[in-house]
Design a protein around this nucleic acid. Structure first.
Lengths: 344, 344
DNA sequence: CTGAAAGCGCTTACAG
DNA sequence: CTGAAAGCGCTTACAG
């Protein structure tokens, strides 16, 4: 084990611990793996020996036997560069790293934007180098989910898969998009708005579909007509939010509120409204979605629907580990929450 | 190897390939490891066998022998949450992942914000689970660099270390902060500005120190007085940019340009200027630093100094791999570039 | 509850 | 150039 330029010192093995504790290597291994069938005396001796020697298990040797790698991939399939601009991604990656670290499991970051990267990553995963995959893909056209499923790799997706995977039983964790949209539109209605527009997300993303559906349902529920002139579609980017806002302003100059399906797009909407001389929230109320770091930073600070990212990642990790342990797939839907700031 | 809920099929081993190719396992291993001392005939037979069987090396078995893990950590020491809001981080993480993937090396993401996390990560690293560390820390107070160095772990830092590590020989890759600052200030001067203010970064970060030094040098070089009323300090966050701008406007209402040490802070400066009714760039020219995704997205689009993130990460990976291979530490300074947009 | 032994899949001197 | 053999550090039935 001694190696590296500075020569890391030779590591202490299970053998050293066994000698130190006066037991066999098998017994050391048993306490390492849960302490079943170990006498209190042996347990104590081994614990002390581990402490004295500073022993750390060699994961490679362990993995060679168990067939598990005790590591997990965070696989980002990213057709658009934009995904990396989205603060949501950071929050998710960060909290997944944390949730895994709490269980002493390293997170291996993989990015599959191109066909070649997809192939390479798939090969790596199939070789058993990770026990499971946290799959974060933006669009439904993504073939990775199906490929992984076919390969028999435990997967849990962030957000409800829309493609082929939707019909198969696949694990996922998502916020309640539709209900969040409903809450926001109800809130806008309750504050007196009657010409409520929306900027939806792409139709091939769950957020695009569900949040728009929630918007429509709530208008109907409130007795408002569903006017297609009030509906624009973006791609979650700030620039697309600007374009959508310009279109809406042109088609429906009398709008008095906009429900925007992401905070980033909402920033674009705010820009356009400011340039058009519309005051927010006095003339037009704007509601976002995500409660990303962009929301408090925008002007005015954005009233939005909070996605519980901490819980989403915690659940993703929990469900994935359960899958790896052999449990059946599970879908987890987490409630959202309205966060009131100044834009509505 | 067969395992997982769906039962991943038993993997093909070097033994299968040897039988298939009609050679010994030793020979297969030799072609796997560079093909030295292998006859062309044997090479061809093994290559074909590998292709037919779909063999993929078991990295755990290999690591157990070689003592190397063939993986690298991306270690983010993050005293401030803010770091994750910074788009620069994304770009760096993304391109490091890519640069490593090109060499078939997985990136293990580690975050050490607290003392406990630092200890845990250090343990993991010292156990030899990664061959080296790409260290990304914002401030100089960070003890991780020293701890890793003492442990004899190959490390390359992003940005020049300022603490104890600065005196030891430690590898790092950085953009030429000082020169970038000089270029921006010269540009502002050349466009006729004579009351050029600056918002510097924290004094315990290389960017905070060097960019401010470049600013001062250039003023002197241009024959302008260095007026301390024109110097404010932020912490790289947008909010701190706002605070700094307010301070500057109060202390030096006649300023006609601001060189801001980060794009994020520059956004804050732009907000304040807009609210104060100053037109950009007509009344006040604003220059940023980074050319992060925030730069083209700001209003007006930000003239800034581009940090060559792609090259920075490529060099970090190259230097780290060289360190792991036994080479001496190296410092790499990369040139920056002025990117003209509309704010100056 | 515990030790002795086999074996995970690979690499690497060592003879030829 | 190539095969046989030892061994990396661990886990896991198997006897006791």
């Amino acid at each position: 084990m001694a190696h590296g330029p500075e020569g890391r010192r030779r590591s202490v093995t299970i053998h050293d611990v066994a000698r130190e504790a006066g037991v066999s290597r098998g017994t050391v291994s048993r306490v390492l793996n849960g302490g079943h069938y170990v006498s209190p005396a042996a347990q104590a001796a081994v614990d002390a020996a581990i402490r004295r020697t500073g022993y750390v298990v060699n994961r490679h040797a362990r993995s060679l036997i168990t067939g598990r790698s005790d590591s997990v991939a965070f696989l980002l399939t990213e057709p658009q560069e934009r995904f990396f601009e989205d603060p949501n991604f950071n929050v998710l990656l960060r909290s997944c790293t944390q949730a895994l670290a709490d269980r002493d499991i390293p997170l291996i970051l993989m990015i599959a934007g191109t066909e070649g990267e997809r192939r390479r990553n798939l090969r790596y995963i199939q070789a058993g180098h990770v026990d499971g995959v946290l799959l974060v893909s933006s669009h439904s056209g993504d073939p990775m989910a199906d490929l992984l499923r076919e390969a028999g790799v435990p997967v849990v997706a962030c957000g409800k898969p829309l493609g082929t995977a939707a019909r198969a039983k696949v694990s996922y964790v998502a916020a309640d998009d539709r209900d969040g949209a409903r809450e926001m539109v109800r809130y806008l209605y309750a504050s007196g708005r009657r010409r409520i527009a929306t900027v939806a997300g792409p139709a091939d993303t769950p957020g695009g579909v569900e949040r728009l559906a929630g918007y429509r349902e709530t208008l109907t529920e409130c007795g408002l007509p569903v006017d297609e002139a009030l509906v624009a579609v973006g791609d979650y980017s700030r620039a697309s939010g600007e374009a959508a806002a310009e279109l809406l302003l042109e088609r429906a100059p009398d709008l008095d509120a906009v429900f925007v399906a992401s905070d980033l797009m909402a920033q674009g909407v705010l820009d356009v409204l400011a340039r058009a001389g519309r005051r927010v929230p006095e003339d037009v109320a704007v509601g976002g979605f995500d409660d990303s770091p962009a929301a408090p930073a925008s002007r005015p600070p954005l009233t939005t629907i909070r996605q519980p990212w901490d819980r989403i990642s915690a659940e993703m990790v929990r469900v994935l580990l359960a899958r790896i342990a052999g449990e059946d797939p599970a879908a987890v839907i987490l409630p959202t929450e309205l966060v009131r700031r100044e834009s509505a």
